[in-house]
Design a protein around this nucleic acid. Structure first.
Lengths: 136, 136
DNA sequence: CTGTATCCCCGCTGATACTG
DNA sequence: CAGTATCAGCGGGGATACAG
């Protein structure tokens, strides 16, 4: 490995003065939960209403969708617009910061698609070499 | 029915157009836990022994370090080398796939450092606008 | 030093019922 | 439609003790 990693990582490297955690836990605490990234990915395609979001994210409950969008709104990653109509109509849309997050999420998806095969193989081999280990 | 170990994910790639999850949950289930990325970041700098890792990752317990490295080993992200010495000596090192994950983690860190200020502001404003909401 | 084995708490999440 | 309220279950993760 070459001595100097060039490119976009300089900022993170210099910001990493004290610990191994260079703000990484901050991001993961924010989007590492079960539903946030999925909601963000759906909203990356444009404005969505509550019910639309729930249909687009298979398996999410009403409660968890509410909690997820609230937290994303709190962090400034999306906006929530209430139209005082009957029936009520609430629109969710990513902020510019939310859109910047989608680029990160895309990188995650790319990495996953690129390596999921190799990981599946590694897992199977490890499980065969370590029967009954209890590790998941 | 298990799809099998040999299939390389053409199905997933095309399926990415249909579902909001393009393998994103796979990655997050793998590195979205409390300690994995921190261990990976430390190992990005080179081979480490068990005790070294524990000292480098503040707050991690013996139990969680063991579980974390086991899971990373199982997924083929690091290698575990046991030297039959007294006292025992075990070395952990990232695989090439583990190193490729490092680039992803750096992107996370970059994004975090770039936006943590804005997020902190957004949170404070939201909390002031929504007192006693219970959202965290 | 490098783990295993238990116990246990707490918070995330799902399910369900209810409301404006 | 878009939530809120409440309860229950499970699993992640910490503390501790023990072992090779």
């Amino acid at each position: 490995m070459s001595v100097g990693h060039m490119g976009i990582t300089t900022e993170a490297v210099v910001g990493c003065e004290e610990h191994v955690d260079c703000g990484i836990r901050d991001v993961l605490d924010r989007i590492g939960d079960k539903w946030s990234v999925l909601v963000v990915v759906e909203l990356a395609q444009g404005m969505r209403r509550f019910r639309q979001l729930q249909r687009a994210v298979p398996g999410i409950s009403q409660r968890m969708l509410t909690l997820t969008v609230r937290r994303l709104e709190r962090d400034g990653l999306l906006t929530r617009t209430v139209h005082p109509t009957v029936p009520p109509q609430v629109e969710y849309e990513l902020t510019p910061m939310g859109h910047s997050l989608t680029r990160l999420v895309r990188a995650l998806a790319d990495w996953s698609l690129e390596h999921r095969g190799a990981i599946a193989v590694a897992r199977q081999e490890w499980d065969e070499a370590n029967p009954g280990s209890g590790i998941r």
